[in-house]
């Protein structure tokens, strides 16, 4: 089984999917990403799907699940580089990619993650006593 590499750039994890993934590879990526988010303390996940010539319901669901997992682990997910034909097909298929933020390219995706982080920090400013590594700072209302 092929494995999709995960790169760390600053506090962002970058995943560029370059292979036609089998379902198993997609599930593996989901698990690998969750582990890497926790291990690195990353606050953003950027998934580049420029090379994907289709996104079917399985991969679509994987992207949604990754976004949800990241959110629970205090990281923002942005999917970038969707091809126009893929977007048209996804909509017709009936897939809504719940909870996924998208951007046209990697650069804009990084800006989006940085902006989301700034918003969170503004809201968090008064509660910084929570301790640096004292478990997840529970945040019930801040993120959107």
């Amino acid at each position: 089984m092929e494995r999709v590499p995960i790169l760390k750039i600053g506090s962002i994890l970058l995943v560029s999917i370059q292979v036609d993934m089998s379902d198993q590879t997609a599930v593996q990526l989901q698990e690998d990403l969750a582990e890497r988010i926790v291990a690195t303390g990353a606050h953003g996940v950027l998934i580049d799907i420029t090379a994907l010539d289709i996104v079917d319901s399985f991969v679509g669901r994987m992207l949604s699940t990754i976004a949800s997992i990241s959110k629970v682990l205090d990281a923002e997910t942005v999917v970038v580089g969707m091809r126009p034909a893929v977007a048209i097909t996804l909509v017709e298929l009936g897939l809504s990619l719940n909870g996924i933020r998208t951007a046209l390219n990697v650069e804009r995706g990084m800006e989006l993650i940085a902006a989301a982080r700034d918003d969170d920090q503004d809201l968090d400013e008064d509660e910084d006593d929570a301790g640096p590594d004292g478990g997840p700072a529970t945040e019930t209302t801040a993120s959107r």
Binding site: D53, I54, D56, S57, R83, A85, I88, L93
Partner: peptide, 17 residues
């Protein structure tokens, strides 16, 4: 066309699964 290729391959992926 590229869009039709994409639609057909996506449908095939769903049905093969």
């Amino acid at each position: 066309s590229l869009v039709d290729q994409t639609k057909l391959v996506t449908a095939a992926s769903e049905l093969a699964r």
